[in-house]
């Protein structure tokens, strides 16, 4: 469904991503791991249109989507979350979801002049937003301002907002960072439920236990290159991967 062919990105002289090939199949849950600075977030930015690749092609359902703007890709169903707590802090949790499940231009005039059909639409969007809050477990916070949420809840809100914009493939950028153990296990369960609903997931995460437990397939990046790809068990045993994370074993000469 999502395919990267020889995608490269350089910032000035620095190559952030070297000719990356990646294929995510429909309904899969794939982990993208690698040490800090490996280029994982850059890959996300390339897929979602926030950056344009220097070389290579990106395909979605066999359609070339290279270089399209983020909002066009989001409407096609490629939706991401961000590192850090990105939300609309001055809005309530519910309003955050309403903006995320946005109505596109044709509804704009109707919504301004409040014709009956738009009212109906508005109502169904609100119901859907409440359903989503129920699904992620934030329904009792619907009317709180988003800025008053705890770190963990803000991260979950970010996921709920991404879901509100009807993704086909969801790209999650470190959804578990900064969470305590209980929040991690709850969020892992949430991600599993999302995946079981048929949404394809591409996941960046530093929490190895969670990634290995969730993902069917893991891709490892280092210095912008794919150094390994396979089932979690294979990745765990892969000497290249160990080297990338822990460095090379070198016997210290003794004398």
């Amino acid at each position: 469904m999502l395919e990267l062919r020889g995608v490269a990105k350089s910032f000035g002289g620095l190559m952030a991503v070297y000719g990356l090939d990646l294929h995510v199949r429909n309904g899969e849950i794939v982990g993208l791991i690698g040490p800090n600075g490996a280029g994982k977030t850059t890959v996300f930015n390339l897929i979602t249109g926030f950056l344009k690749p220097s070389r290579g092609k990106i395909l979605f359902h066999d359609e070339d989507i290279t270089g399209k703007s983020p909002h066009v890709l989001a409407r096609k169903g490629i939706v991401r979350t961000f590192q850090g707590n990105l939300c609309f802090p001055e809005f309530t949790v519910l309003e955050n979801l309403l903006v995320a499940s946005n109505l596109t231009a044709p509804y704009l005039m109707a919504s301004i002049f409040r014709v009956p059909s738009s009212r109906k639409k508005e109502k169904s969007i609100k119901e859907r937003a409440f359903d989503l809050l129920e699904f992620v477990g934030l329904s009792n916070m619907a009317h709180l301002p988003a800025r008053s949420l705890s770190h963990g809840h803000k991260r979950v809100l970010g996921i709920a907002m991404a879901l509100a914009s009807r993704p086909k493939v969801l790209l999650l950028d470190e959804p578990l960072s900064g969470m305590n153990a209980r929040e991690v296990s709850e969020t892992v369960e949430l991600l599993r439920k999302i995946w079981e609903r048929g949404i394809t997931i591409l996941l960046i995460e530093h929490n190895m236990r969670a990634t290995m437990g969730l993902c069917e397939r893991v891709v490892v990046l280092n210095f912008g290159k794919k150094i390994a790809e396979g089932a979690p068990e294979e990745i765990r045993e892969n000497p290249e991967v160990m080297k990338a994370y822990l460095g090379e074993r070198r016997d210290v000469p003794r004398d």
Partner: peptide, 22 residues
Amino acid sequence: SRFGLTLKAIRQADILCESFGV
């Protein structure tokens, strides 16, 4: 209206709005 809500959202975090298809 939703137009105004979206404008205020853009003011708070425009890249987030882009990522939802706005």
